[in-house]
Design a protein around this nucleic acid. Structure first.
Lengths: 183, 183
DNA sequence: GGCTAAGCTGAGTCGGCACTCAACTTCAAC
DNA sequence: GTTGAAGTTGAGTGCCGACTCAGCTTAGCC
């Protein structure tokens, strides 16, 4: 298969700027933010954005991939009996800062091929789950799908519900108790 | 304060049709569906929709109120030690059928004054929570806000995540265990 | 330095949607 | 039945956002 030629230096620079701007814009304003706004924030013309990412979905898919990879990496850095709880807490607390991820993870978004991008995150969380179960802090009856489901649901709830710190703590306390005790 | 005069018979009929159509359309397509589509489904001209509901948000607010009242009523019909769990399970299972509610409950939506409309639902769930705690099926440490938060989050997760019956069951098992055992 | 393909620009096109309004229709009070 | 106010109609308006493209600029190879 043909490999596309390397980008010119200026094009590489612009591509990076666009991705950074898109991440900021979509995280703040959600996936509904306009491409125009991304271009403005990146300091390029709108045509340039579309040269690098032919459709808005392509752009969303690209930043999702980056964001998910980053989340997976931070999950990978944790471990031990409470690693899963720590990751869970962190993701929920920062839900607002990663609005785009939560947004798109939740709804099939704008029809992005997520599975591949989500894979690493799922794998990292699976690792944390395994460790927690080995340590006995999470019941053996719990499996990965429901952990991911809860992770996404609660993050999304926190984001859109604008939960304060106390509500986050209390809600997570219920979820964590459930993970420990599930019959 | 002035009371608006009673509607003419045909206007009443149209108003009801519009509400029914809006409920169907927004439940199927989400809050993003067009007013045009609502008018088509109701069998009236678009101008008629806007005569009854000056803005799209007014229309959304109206059906939200109906839907929430209906949910509150169904919660009111339940009771006993497992009433809360039953209501929870039912709402999550039907999340897809009430897409509009979940949609708008979650995000402040299109800026609708929800508090008033949500009140009755919260009260009904509070009643179920009280009964469950009296019966000992839910820990006394649990309070209403986190129950509502979980209810909304998990419903939304199920809706957008397209959870199958098994995932719903497994996820709810974790939540219910948490409600029982919360330290 | 000269050249050219790669890349950039931004005004413009297109489609979709919330909302308007002048002309027309219908209910209901008498 | 007549009448007028209430209600309906649907083509039209305005706005916004995704996407295009002809003309211009520039990186980078000789």
């Amino acid at each position: 298969m043909p490999v596309d030629p390397p980008l010119r230096a200026d094009a590489q620079r612009n591509r990076a700027r666009i991705l950074d701007a898109a991440e900021a814009v979509f995280s703040e304003l959600g996936a509904g933010a306009s491409t125009e706004e991304v271009a403005r924030r990146a300091g390029v013309a709108i045509g340039t954005v579309f040269r690098h990412f032919p459709t808005k979905d392509d752009l969303l898919a690209a930043i999702m991939k980056r964001l998910l990879a980053r989340l997976a990496a931070s999950a990978g850095r944790l471990g031990g009996p409470d690693g899963l709880f720590e990751f869970f807490t962190g993701m929920v607390a920062e839900a607002a800062g990663i609005r785009a991820v939560v947004d798109l993870l939740a709804r099939g978004g704008t029809d992005i091929r997520l599975p591949d991008a989500v894979g690493p995150l799922t794998a990292a969380v699976g690792e944390l789950l395994g460790q927690a179960q080995e340590a006995g802090t999470v019941s053996d009856g719990v499996r990965l799908p429901e952990v991911m489901a809860l992770l996404v649901s609660v993050s999304q709830g926190a984001l859109y519900g604008g939960w304060d710190a106390e509500l986050r703590t209390r809600t997570l306390a219920v979820v964590f108790a459930g993970l420990k005790q599930r019959s």
